[in-house]
Computed example of a mutant assay.
Amino acid sequence: MKVRFIICSLFLISFLGLKAQENFSATLNFKTEPTDKINFSETNIAVFYQKKLGTKSKIANTLEYSNLKVNYEFNPYNFYADQDKFNQVQDKFEYSSEITEKTRWQLSVVPTANFQSKLDFSDVTVLGSLEISQQLSSKFNVIVGAGRTSIFGAPKFTPIVAFDYKMNEKTDFEIGFPDSRISYSNNDRNKFSLTNSFNGNFYHLDEKNVDNNAEKAVLSQMTSALEYERNVAANWFLNFKAGYDFNKKYNLLDSNDHKIYDYNNGNGYVLGIGIKYKQ
Rank of each mutant, 00 (worst) to 15 (best):
E101R: 10
E101A: 14
K102N: 10
T103K: 06
T103C: 08
R104Y: 08
W105I: 04
W105Q: 06
L107D: 10
L107H: 04
V109C: 08
V109D: 10
V109E: 10
V110H: 01
T112D: 15
A113Q: 06
N114I: 08
F115C: 09
L119V: 01
L119K: 00
D120E: 11
D120Q: 12
S122D: 08
V124C: 09
T125K: 13
G128N: 01
G128P: 01
G128W: 15
S129D: 15
S129N: 12
L130P: 06
E131V: 13
Q134P: 01
Q135K: 12
S137A: 09
S137C: 04
S138Q: 09
S138P: 05
K139Q: 07
I143Y: 14
V144C: 12
G145M: 01
A146P: 04
I151L: 10
G153N: 00
P155V: 09
P155W: 01
F157I: 11
A162F: 12
F163T: 07
Y165K: 00
Y165P: 00
K166Q: 13
K166C: 06
N168Q: 03
E169F: 00
D172K: 14
I175F: 07
G176R: 03
G176L: 03
G176Q: 00
F177R: 03
S180F: 11
I182S: 04
I182E: 00
S183V: 03
Y184I: 03
N186G: 06
D188T: 09
R189A: 15
